[in-house]
């Protein structure tokens, strides 16, 4: 949908020449072009074959770690979000209260704090964790990152799931019930297909947020993309370490964003008129 079409035509017909908005607009675009050229010029000027040879493989490895971390956490979070969403929608007071607290805690505190709590916090309960046999898992920083991220994203995904299911009108449940479908069948065959269309965009946003948030694990000794950048910067004191990594993240997020939009266009084709 075009933005302009939805808005009022201003009383004076569209100005030719140079109205104020066009001057500002051109100035802003000019600023961005200058900015972009500045970055490119800097990267060319500061081009350092040694730097590239030394750190490019490390960045690739970091990228792998980042993608692996995000994928595992998203999938685990999705699995965990089902019981949480169920609890949130349950009429059982205790169940819904527990689910509410879970969601509130993980959405109300910074992911960085949660990650610290898991990695450094649980580190001080080694003896207790060892007796229940969980220490081997928490020994590894990557596992700790996945654990914290999965718990966090489960809270967000549970809310997405709940919102999507609740967005399906009640009549759909009633209709299915009158056809003799039981609840689980209704959910699977009638409700979820409709809910997932609604949920696609929020899920996409959550995925993008996770990709961005994954930079946090660099702080708990995991060498993800950001971790490699930090290391490269600390060894070379060269700001291009961060500029390269910023470009990689930007490209990654843009691909995801356009990918989600493309999928959304495909699966809502039947809704278009």
């Amino acid at each position: 949908m075009s933005v302009t079409a939805a808005l009022a035509e201003r009383p004076p017909p569209r100005a030719r020449g140079w109205p104020r908005s066009r001057v500002i607009g051109y100035a802003m675009v000019g600023f961005w072009i200058l900015f972009g050229l500045g970055i490119v010029a800097y990267l060319i000027f500061a081009w350092n074959a040694d730097f590239f040879a030394k750190y490019a493989p490390a960045y690739l490895k970091g990228l792998q770690t980042t993608l692996l971390l995000v994928c595992i956490s998203m999938v685990l979070g999705a699995i965990l979000s089902v019981p949480v969403a169920y609890g949130r929608m349950s009429s059982n007071r205790i169940l819904s209260g527990l689910a509410y607290c879970y969601v509130y805690f993980f959405r109300g505190t910074p992911l960085l704090v949660q990650t610290y709590l898991v990695y450094y916090g649980l580190g001080s309960f080694r003896a207790e964790l060892q007796t229940v046999g969980l220490w081997d898992f928490f020994k590894d920083a990557f596992n700790c990152g996945v654990f914290a991220f999965a718990l966090n994203t489960a809270a967000y995904q549970a809310e997405i799931l709940r919102g999507a299911i609740e967005s399906v009108p009640r009549g759909q449940w009633e209709g299915a019930a009158s056809l003799g479908l039981h609840k689980l069948q209704t959910l699977r065959k009638i409700i979820l297909p409709q809910a997932l269309i609604v949920a696609l965009r929020p899920y996409g946003n959550e995925l993008i947020l996770m990709v961005k948030a994954s930079a946090i694990v660099a702080i708990i000794t995991v060498y993800d993309l950001m971790g490699q950048a930090k290391l490269a910067f600390a060894n070379s004191f060269d700001i291009q370490a961060y500029i390269w990594v910023a470009l990689v993240y930007l490209v990654m997020v843009e691909i995801l964003r356009h990918g989600v939009e493309w999928i959304e266009r495909r699966i809502t084709i039947h809704l278009k008129r």
Binding site: V3, T4, L7, R10, R14, P19, S21, R22, I24, G25, Y26, M28, V29, F31, W32, V211, K212, A213, S214, A215, I216, A218, M226, A229, K230, F233, I239, Y242, I243, V245, A246, Y249, L250, V253, E254, R257
Partner: peptide
Amino acid sequence: QSEEPSLRLAANIYTTVFRGLPELVTLFL
């Protein structure tokens, strides 16, 4: 939501950049 395409472009670049970069990277940069 302006009618001026250049303004829209500039604003879209702005949000693309700052929503696309991880907060931590922006901060370090």
